[in-house]
Amino acid sequence: MTTPPTGFLEEADLHAFVDGILDPDQRRRVEEHLAQHPEDAALVESWQRQNAAIRAVYEPILREIPAPSLRSAAAQVAAPSGTIESGATHWGRPGVLPRVRRREDILAQQRRQAIFASVLAVLSVAAVAALATFIFAGRGEHRPITAASAPQGYVARAGLTYATYVSDQHPVEIDASRLEELSSWLKARVGFYKVPDLSQQGMRLIGGRVAPGVAAPAGFLIYERPDGGRVGLYFERSVATISQQASKSGSGVTAIEWRTADFAFVLIGPLSLDLMQVAAEKAAAQIIGASQP
């Protein structure tokens, strides 16, 4: 703040007072002025009230735990495909390391990426094709899942849960007409019971169930669109050691993963990325609203 002429205060001094950037002498001078000028004191108080209102809304965000891949974003090398359009669908992309890396590590990583890029592309196409076949064929060859082949990430687990239940004749254990019972069950077994309302996105809740999770029981809600397409919301108490996975979008199936309130959530369904992202935003907003006091 520039020092005003002795005995005078400018509005800049009042803003600087509110913003806490005055030295002790200047601060005392403003305080004396405010004690003698209630109109200016009220003005200052209104600005302080604005600041308090803003902080009250946004300070709780500091208590949320950011995804590990978000914390290490600056260390990540951008995907060769180009600009990131949506962080949610890119968190935890393969090759992202959750630790801080040195320059040599990053250069080595780039070399490895160049060598294995074509191999990864082939494997990715094969994985998506297999998932799509499993989902849409309805009755795939049932092979027992061994510990070595079991999916470890939440997106992979959500995909498996979706494929298992979505086309079943009885996809849910408790239907939407018994919402209170469903919530109580999910609360007891999974620890989270808020059932987002996605009706504005044209998704009617069918019901939900408890399903095997990666490290704990998971909740799985199924919504249905007027065209018969079904969307699943998978959630499980998140474990820090399990990094977020790149979301899947291929062969008509899109999955978006996010984490909040100590839980990992995955919205998965046969819709476009745009529609799924809008629905995910809606669900996330309601979940945040439910988890805040």
């Binding site: 950011p66 995804a67 990131i84 359009e85 962080g87 669908t89 992202q277 995910a280 945040i288």
Partner: peptide, 14 residues
């Protein structure tokens, strides 16, 4: 929404 905001932070930091 938080997904968009976190995505923005991710992109900016990257």
């Amino acid at each position: 929404g938080l997904v968009v905001a976190d995505g923005l932070v991710h992109s900016a930091l990257q």
